[in-house]
Structures are given as C-alpha cells and as structure tokens.
C-alpha cells in the first residue's frame, strides 16, 4: 500500500518539529540543573521576543516563496534613526519610535520597489540592502553606541503578570499575523504567490502589489523587533540585528514553513522554530559549553531542517502522482 507509506512519511514531516522541540527540552532538563525553572524559561522567551517578531515578518516573505535577508539591517538602521532622533534632536521616545516604525515600512518598501519595479531577484536585492542599510546606520551613529533614555530601558525589563512585557507584545503580534495569514484576503494571496506567480497572474491576483506589501510588512516587523531588542540592551549597539535574518530563516524552516513557498503557519510554525533555537542556545549556556559551539550546532540544525524541506518538496510531487494513479 503505497498510500499508507506516504502518509506515515507525511506525518513524520508534520510532527517531526514537535519531536525535535520535545527532545531538546528533555535533553536539557536532565543535563542542566536550572533549565526547567520558571525564571529560566521566562528569561529564555524574553531573549527570544525580538526574533519571534522578525521571524514572523520573514515567514510572510517565505510564504510567497522569496527571502528577505536584509531584515536584521532594517532593524538596525531604523532603530539608529530613532536613537539619533532621541539623542541629538531631543525627540520624546514615543515620537521617535513612530518614526522608527515608519522607517521600517519605508526600508521594506525600498526592497519591494527594487524587486517589483526594477525586477531584481529578491535574494540579490536584499543581499545588497543587507550591507547598504547597515552601512547607513553606521554612518548615522558614527558607529557610537547610543544610550536609551530611562523610560525605554524600563520597558525592556518591565513585566506583566510576571512575564516580560515584550513577550506579551510578541505573542500578540504573532496571533494577529496568524489571523491575517489564515483569514484575511492578503494572507491567502501571499500563500497563493508561493504556489507560482504565473498561475496567480492568470487568476487575476495583483501579484506585484502583494509582493510589495509583503516586503513592507516584513520591514515594519523588523523595526518593531529592533525596538524590542534595543530596549532590552538599553542602548543602540552596532551589533543590533546582526545575523538575525539567518537565524530567522533557520527558525522558519525548523517550524515547518517551506522555503519553496505556500506552506506552513505562523502559529505554531514560527513559535516552535524560534523557541527551539533559543532553547538550544540557553541550554548550552547552562551546560557551560563553549559559546561558539552554539554557532556550530545552529548551522547543523539549519542544514538538517533545509534538507528535510527539500525532501518534503520532492515527496510532494510523488504524492500527487500516486493519488493520480489510484483514482
């Protein structure tokens, strides 16, 4: 029975990500003493909050079958703008942050413009802006670290019901984005794009507009992630957002969102992916492992998850064939 075999494989792909997450938790619970305590888990999700938000933006881009590797730089440049406004021009934090969010949208829009209007490959486009945006940020701050006002620092460490405020913010955003992806016209169009732009054009979907909006949304979320990250650190550092885009891609694939587009969900996908990576980092810390080991383990996980994704895409083709023959 070919069909049965495939469904076993299918479910393995479907639930494999939970197996990994559960395995990671189990491993560290037994090997690291203070791993499974409220305080540790609370600080763990706190650390993961910026990544949850940025990865959700990345997920939308990936749903369309594309990548945006400039998100870390967008987070950096947009917060630099805010920091400079606060420090040099005396903007109140609220006003500065509104401008940060607007910058995020504009920077995402620049990506969208280059991709949609100038027809440049998304990966190449964002590879360019990855460097360009960070460069602009460095010029703007003259690569100095800018300290945040007390109010901002307070937000970074504030708690609601014992849990850090930014975790609540991240969860709220994820729920909202999940809803948009699943129930709104825009979300469906984004998923449709991941199935092939040619087909979407024939179906009368406004392809260019949807791609443009997706990159703006990703930029917007990157700037929120940047603010959260900056508030946590208490200052704008030159390292803010660095490498985040790649961790985001890894988290997404780990969460079962296909890089080929059109498949996966914000919840639980992004949540599982980001938390798994953060659990590993945190657990290795607790074990007193060499901090560079995390980089290596991270790379291995990305590689494994991507091979699984590619394998899944190959199997998908087979599933169609088998069901064709059986009808």
């Amino acid at each position: 029975m070919k069909l049965k075999q495939l469904s076993i494989k299918d479910s393995l792909f479907k639930y494999g990500f939970y197996v990994i997450l559960f395995g990671v938790i189990l491993f560290f619970t037994f090997s690291a003493e203070y791993f499974l305590t409220f305080a540790n888990i609370n600080s763990l999700v706190h650390a993961a909050a910026p990544m949850l938000i940025i990865a959700a933006g990345m997920a939308f881009v990936v749903f369309t079958g594309k990548l945006d590797i400039s998100l870390g730089s967008i987070a950096y440049l947009s917060t630099c703008i805010g920091a400079v406004l606060m420090k040099n021009l005396g903007f109140p934090p609220a006003a500065a942050f509104i401008i940060v969010l607007l910058s995020g949208i504009v920077l995402g829009g620049i990506n969208g413009f280059i991709i949609v209007i100038l027809k440049v490959n998304p990966l190449i486009t964002t590879l360019g802006t990855l460097t360009a945006f960070r460069g602009l940020g460095l010029i703007l701050t003259q690569s100095f670290e800018i300290r945040m006002p007390e109010a901002v620092r307070a937000f970074g460490t504030s708690r609601i019901l014992g849990v850090f405020s930014d975790v609540w913010l991240a969860l709220l955003l994820l729920i909202l984005l999940h809803f948009i992806h699943q129930k709104a016209v825009f979300g469906k169009q984004v998923t449709a794009l991941g199935n092939g732009e040619e087909v979407c054009l024939r179906l009368g979907i406004r392809v260019d507009r949807t791609i443009f909006l997706t990159f703006m949304l990703a930029g917007f979320l990157a700037s929120i992630g940047g603010i959260v990250s900056m508030a946590q650190i208490g200052q704008s550092t030159t390292f803010l957002g660095k490498g985040m885009e790649f961790t985001a891609v890894a988290a997404i694939v780990l969460g079962g969102i296909s890089l080929f587009g059109g498949e996966g969900k914000i919840i639980p996908g992004v949540l599982i992916g980001v938390l798994t990576l953060e659990l590993i980092r945190n657990g290795l810390n607790h074990l007193g492992a060499n901090p560079y080991l995390y980089e290596f383990v991270n790379g291995g996980i990305i590689f494994t998850a991507m091979s699984a994704d590619a394998l899944k895409a190959r199997l998908r083709g087979q599933v169609i064939l088998v069901s064709d023959e059986n009808t």
């Binding site: 129930k183 199935n195 179906l203």
Partner: peptide, 28 residues
Amino acid sequence: MALLPTMTVMDNMFIADFPKRWGAIINR
C-alpha cells in the same frame, strides 16, 4: 489548469474574488 496545490478547494475557487467582511477579512 490554474490551480494552487498548497491551498484548499475553497480557496482555489475564490482566490480572485473572496466574499469579504469588513473589506479585508474572508467571509468563510
């Protein structure tokens, strides 16, 4: 055929013109 494999039958039929609520939410 112009179909979207990762989406449902329903989504495929309505993708070009969903019945809407409040302008942007799909009336399922």
